[in-house]
Every structure is written in structure tokens, then in C-alpha cells.
Design a protein around this nucleic acid. Sequence first.
DNA 1: TGTTAGCACTCACTGCATGCGAGTGCCAAA
DNA 2: TTTGGCACTCGCATGCAGTGAGTGCTAACA
Lengths: 338, 338
Amino acid sequence: MEELTPRQQSILGVVIRSYISNPQPVSSKALLEHSSIDVSSATVRNEMAALEAKGFLTHPHTSAGRQPTDAGYRYFVERLLGEVELPLEERNTIRHQFHQSKLEVGAWMNLAAAVMARSVRSAAVITAPKIENPRLRTIQLISIQSTTVLLVLVMQGGTVRQQMVQLREPADQNLLTQSSNRLNNLFAGRDEQSVKTHRHELSELEQTVLAIVMALMQTDGPSNSEVVRDGLTEVLQEPEFRAQADARALVNALESRGLLDEIHDSRVGTVRVVIGGEGRWRELSSCSVVLARYGMEGFATGTLGVVGPTRMPYGRAIGTVRYLSELMSDLVTDTFGE
Amino acid sequence: MEELTPRQQSILGVVIRSYISNPQPVSSKALLEHSSIDVSSATVRNEMAALEAKGFLTHPHTSAGRQPTDAGYRYFVERLLGEVELPLEERNTIRHQFHQSKLEVGAWMNLAAAVMARSVRSAAVITAPKIENPRLRTIQLISIQSTTVLLVLVMQGGTVRQQMVQLREPADQNLLTQSSNRLNNLFAGRDEQSVKTHRHELSELEQTVLAIVMALMQTDGPSNSEVVRDGLTEVLQEPEFRAQADARALVNALESRGLLDEIHDSRVGTVRVVIGGEGRWRELSSCSVVLARYGMEGFATGTLGVVGPTRMPYGRAIGTVRYLSELMSDLVTDTFGE
DNA sequence: TGTTAGCACTCACTGCATGCGAGTGCCAAA
DNA sequence: TTTGGCACTCGCATGCAGTGAGTGCTAACA
């Protein structure tokens, strides 16, 4: 990335901040009013021309002001923004809300999504923390009807998985309780391999259940594939979305999980900013995404972030996403940690 | 509602069908092309004027064709549509999908929402069946950390409720198992009143848990307040939503639960059609809603339906919503019935 | 009495010419 | 290197006329 003189940097900064707060091309004169830069408008025009030559600004047409390009936003985020942190007061408010809420991952996810949506005024997404190597804590079988049984698995960390099972033959609750006790004893303290070697000791019913348990532990449960979204309304009121095409692209991106799965390579704690559909996110050409992973590395992690127009308030967004990812990480560590 | 001559009825029908398939005012001449009505355009104009006088059609401006009013749609739905049923083939496809899916309420809800959204090409909503008088089946306490305990309630019908509980003093798994057994025995076969009279026999820990259990049974759990939505994208591509205001109203209506709670007075099985925000739904002035309740009356019921522009395909919508409500009712009866 | 042909009228929409003004680019002077 | 000044560009609003789709009405017809 090319170097800019300090004055060019501050001009770029002013243009971007102005354009973010109100999406109109900013002219050399308007720029002088909104900033403390003390030169003439002609000088500003020269600098703007230089910035345009380097690819950080554009011109919608000859006699219009300048507006940032994606590269401009990129430079802004990486060089001009510095370390952003949410104001202490705001952090306290958020933390307070979390401590008030129920001790439940689902509630936290909803809360986090709502906080992000409100704070950044854009759409927010968050996935449930996915547990890397789920370990079983308890199996319980509950009779629903003669051959219908509810299988409840409680995993380490308190995640609950449930599944209806159809048996070949009727089984009453007593039998089911016995079986679940037997299965629990079998699992206690052993790993999956050693469980398999003891399989022959089990009744047919127990073997059926065991197979389903094993299958369930392999696949993601609904609670893992769960995604909470919020703030669609916030985004739809932005002026750039009067053109419905973009709005649709955004809703699409949110409804498909692709976007969230993609960043599973980055590390917990780092905030990633994708501007104007860089890389593979072609569809989101007029959107930016600020994402972070949260949780315990290598053990249970999820993703959270916001999606909005390219001219989003990056400072707020990054600050909010970072703080919430820290907060959620702490909460996950508290409940899932041994 | 005023009476119409057969010819007026058929003209109204053609106007509405034409307007639904393509949202442009339909002129007297265009109407003759799209229908088998064999009179001159002048006659059609006379009839249209009559229909306008009765309030079923409007005029955007003097020299434009006619388009239906809300009253027009209403008449169409109640008098001209007749009994609509989804084609047998389609019903079979849908039923097949349901039998393929997992035996789980959540999976059914998602499936139903997806089917509605695709079939009607509009936004779909569905609430989980809310159980009227929930009865407890099993309590289980699982130690997570020294003072953190996971409380799992399995309700009649297989709904699972979970809640983290912070204890005052540490408790190990043995103690917790004992306590949950004691509580289960206490609940076995008794109603809430008789449970309360035996409260004094319990330890402090058990009393704490009991209080939380009671509270949980009063309030709606997340699975009851859960709402599945789908097909936002479908709606946003409709031309009337290029004006973002309407789109926002719609998203708003979907994100708030108000809309769904309102129809809890109607009976299971009947399909309700609300056109253009009749009654209290002022915000949805350019939308229509087709809703039905499903489940077992007085025992476990939920709501499902679609929301789309006033010019929605009412036939399809009503047919789809009715069939899905029947299907979901059957499924609920199968799993929740004694 | 109901239907139809014909005609005048309305009105959105398009294209075109005009003027205005915001804003740039560039040059020459400080 | 900065700045004042000036010519030039171009979007945008306004006004105006022409066009055509479509109606409303009237008079004639079955």
C-alpha cells in the first residue's frame, strides 16, 4: 500500500468520516468547513487529485465532490483508525445487561446480536459456540408413547441435545431408565474407542440407542448450527438500499451460512474487516463485514459480527465487535471451562 | 357487502388475477385479451365504472386502467375463490418431505416455513406449539462447575427446557442425582398444589431448585417463544418493495411477535386472511397476511402463515397454509397425544 | 333496456432546450 | 509550495410540447 503524506492522510480521514455520516460526495470547500485543516480549497483539490490517482477516492462525475473507494476505506481502517475501544461507560452498560440476563448461551447470543445491531446500526449475526470435541455427560431416555422415546444427551459444558427415537418394540419407562443407566456407566470416563469394544454387552435396545448417540455426536446439532440475526430493519433504512438489488444481496448473505463459515480460519480475538466484498464475497459489493471469532480456541468457538453498507462506522463497529467477542469469550470460558 | 352481477364478478376476478400476476393497472382492452369475456371494451368500461362506484376497484389517475382495492381483494377471497386445495401431487411432495425429516418439532417448523415461503413466494412465519398446561415428566440436575448446575426439565410430549442455576454452596454430582430423584418422586403423579404441601420435606438445595422449576413452568420457554421465519428474500424482490418504507414495515412486523399473538382467538383449522392491514395492523398497509392455527385445541397450539404484498396469490396461499396447518396438527397430535 | 361505436378529453411520460450552480482543473502569481 | 482566479463541465431542475394509452360520455342500434 502506497504511502501518504500526513496532510493527505488527514484529508482522506475527513472525507471518509464526512461521507460516512452523510453519503454525499464531499467537495473541497465542504471539507474545509468540517475540519480544522487550514489551507485553501485549491490545495485541497490538488491533494484530492493525488489521492484519486492513488486509488483512494473517486469521482462520480466531473463536477462532483469526492467519495471513498474500497481501497480508501481499507487504508482508513488499517492506518488511520488506530486502536478503537468502546467508551468505558458503554462497555459497562453492555456488561451490566449481560450479567442481568439468564445464564444461557441462547440468551447471550440474542443479547449480543441486539447490542451489535443497536450500537452499529446495522445487521448483526452470531453463531453458537461450536464445541470441537464434544464429550458426553449424561444420557437419558424418556418414554413418550409405546414405541416413541425421547433421547436427551447432556454434553460437557451444559449443551443439551435431544432426538426422538422410534423403537421396534414397545418399552416402558422402567426398562428405559435401566438402559440409560447402563449406557451412562459404559460411557463414564471412557473414550469412544473403548466404548465400542464393550458394545456386545448391550441389549438390542441399548445398541440402537448407542448408534444414534454416536451419530449425534458426530454431526452438528441444531444448537450448533443455530444462527441469531438481528437489526435487518436498521440496514434497510439506509439510503443506499433503496435500490432493492443490494438489499436482497444482503439478506441473502445473511440467510445463507456461507459467510460465517468462511472466516473459521482466523484466530479468536482478532477482528476481521471485509470491505466491499473483497476476496470471495462478490455478492456483497456494496457491503462491509466486521467479524470476530469468540470462545476458547480449539475447544468451543463461534463467530459474531455485523454487516452493513461500505460506509459503515468502522470505529464503532470494530470496537463493538471486539468488546462483544471478549465478553462472549469470557462467558464461554466461565460455563464451558473445567 | 353489495351484490354483484355474474359479469361484474367475472370482470373483478379477471382484473385481480391479472393484477396479481403483473402489478399494472389493467385496461378495458387488456382485460378482453386475457379473458373469455365476449363483449366490447365499452361495456367493460361501464362495468368497471360500476365496480369502482361500489368500491372494489380504483383508478390511480384518469387515463389509467383499474386496479383492485382492499375491498376488491376481500370480495375476491370470500366470494370468488371458492374452496382452494393444493394439487394432490404437491400435497404428496410436501408430506413426503415431512416424513423424511427428523422427528423433531424444530425441524418441522423450519420445513413448514421453507415450504410456505417457496410455495407462496413470500415471507413465512411459524411459532412453536405452545403447550397450554405443561406437565413435568422428569427433572435432572447436572453438575457443571462447583456451584454451577444445569437443570434439565423434560415436559410431557418431549419438550426439553434447560436452565443454568447458580447454587450458594458447592454440590457434587452424587448429591445432585439424589436430589433430582427426590424431586422426581415428589412430582410423580401429583399436581402442583399437592407438590407445594410437601415442600417442607425438602433440603435447601431442593427447595431452591423447586422454586426455579415452578417459575420455569409458568413462563414460556425459549422453545415456546421461538419463531421461525423464512423467505424474506422472496418478498424483497417484489416490485412494490422498491419503496423501502413498506419493506421496513414488513420486516418490522415479522421481527416483532405482535402479529402472531393477535390471532390466538381464532380456532384451529380456520384460515384467516387479513388484507392491507385491516383492523389493527395499520403498519402493514400494503401487505396481506394469511394465517392459521395448528395443533390440538386447548392443549398445544401454534400459529403459521405467510405475509406478502396485498396482491399475493391468495389461492395458493390459503391452500398452502391450510394444508400445512393440517399436517402440523397431525404431527403434533402424533407426538404430544397421550 | 342493454350494448356498442365513436369521439373528445385527461394525464402520465418522454424528449428537448434552457438556465443555474456546485465543483473541478489548471495557470500564473505570490 | 501555496493560493487566487477563471474557464469549463456536468448534474439537475424547470418549462414546454408531443405522444399515446385509456377513460367517460353520447348517440345510435338491436
